[in-house]
Design a protein around this nucleic acid. Structure first.
Lengths: 138, 138
DNA sequence: CTCGATTTGATACATTATATCATTTCTCAG
DNA sequence: CTGAGAAATGATATAATGTATCAAATCGAG
């Protein structure tokens, strides 16, 4: 993992495993479960779930990967990297995912909802629905 | 389950299992995993996971139970029952949970974020953080 | 170089969730 | 009332997701 924790921000500070996992996610451009990622990176030498989960945790803390809690799945950040001001919309049928950036105004409005006695650390905002294509198909 | 599906809205249309599961959740007043619920209702005769998950699905569709995706856990609705306009804030340390009602203004703002080509079915909004008590303890 | 710390690898297991089929219960047409 | 079909529940088995723990390798400071 080299010197990542001295200045948590340069892509080339990613560990080899993080790079492999990130590339798998970027290739897919669809959300992948940790085990789907594992299958995908197995040829490159990663062979155990904790290795994948560790890489994902690292990438998530850098904002380069986001976890979709509604799907128990992961996606590469559409912007390369971003902080906590994002949301996701996805189609429950075809699993197409759209990353949504929250502008300051929206984000600040959200934060106002949080009770005063909780120090906010992480916001999860996910919209599930059916995309036009899947509605048409139905 | 009696006549529930003819007019999805009266509490006394709940199945016996739904009543048991709902009471377990209301007793706890903290989020419970499906398996914690199972342990809790086992004395009353429920003994298999699918039974609990089925009851939870029914209760959730009635808005009487909400699933916290961030915790893979369930809570009884603080209002008895409510539609999709709610959010949760919880402390990652002590797991205390607060249900937040979204007023129309907030909700409509959120909905505007959803891409036009997705027909929204479900919104997940969850805030994770540390409550004052747990911060003090740290 | 070598000690200690950090990262990675590996094993094993815990937790969460669901597919499937068998059984029971309910409904209602006759 | 009754029996056939539908709906709900029970039970079994297993799939999918996630983590604790320790061992081995690697790295960096002294």
């Amino acid at each position: 993992m080299a010197t990542k924790h001295q200045h948590d921000h340069a892509e080339d500070d990613l560990s080899a495993n993080e790079v492999r996992v990130l590339e798998a996610l970027r290739d897919s451009k669809e959300p992948m479960s940790a085990y789907a990622i594992l299958d995908r990176v197995r040829p490159s030498g990663i062979s155990h779930p904790p290795t994948v989960y560790r890489a994902l945790a690292g990438l998530e803390s850098l904002g380069m990967v986001h976890r979709l809690k509604s799907l128990s799945a992961f996606v590469a950040c559409g912007h390369g990297r971003c902080g906590g001001r994002f949301a996701f919309a996805f189609c429950r049928q075809c699993q197409r995912v759209e990353e949504i950036s929250l502008d300051d105004e929206h984000y600040d409005d959200l934060v106002k909802l949080v009770p005063k006695d909780i120090h906010l650390e992480q916001t999860t905002l996910e919209f599930a629905g059916l995309c036009s294509a899947c509605q048409a198909a139905a």
